[in-house]
Amino acid sequence: MKKEQTEELFVKWVDGRLNNEEQSQLDELFAADPELEAELTGAKEVTAVLQSEIPKSVEPPYPDFFNSQLMRKVDLEIAAQRPAEKAARWWESLRWAWAPVGALALVLAFFAGQRMSPQGNGGLADRGTADSSEKSEELPNVYFAEKSLTAEVIADADGNVSAIVVEGITAISDDIDFARADRTTSLPARYLQSEERRLQ
């Protein structure tokens, strides 16, 4: 069997697209080389895990940068493997099949990074009580001026934010009468700039 045909068999097997005839051809190859079957089984498991973890519709962030970094990684990998290539068995040259797996891994790493954020006292609130489904992607972050504050983001049935409960804010003095203008302290500079701009 030609090298191209066997490579196609491997890819189809990993993707679960083999017909009966192709399956029997592959079984013969596995019988001849049990190590080959173990390696391809590993690749199939990794692919299945990644596909189950990552939504198919998600676009990679900053696609140009993403693609250039991915191609750079692939080039480096190929360059690093060149001296050993001669000694490697022919089916080990099937490294291109790992490119989509690498791409999925990078996307997964990006999402994992997005989901890791300090909780409460770190100055950034959690992203709510909703589960980690697609719905919670639109829940806001809360940033605090003081570390003593905490916040809980509450989502409605549609997954949209409906309330933010902030705890630890300094209580307002009971003596304050909101009906009177308070002239004892200066207003925020940004407020004054905004008013000036509005009145121009």
Partner: peptide, 9 residues
């Protein structure tokens, strides 16, 4: 609150 920023979202 009291002319100071407390939190943003």
């Amino acid at each position: 609150q009291s002319k100071r920023k407390v939190f943003s979202t």
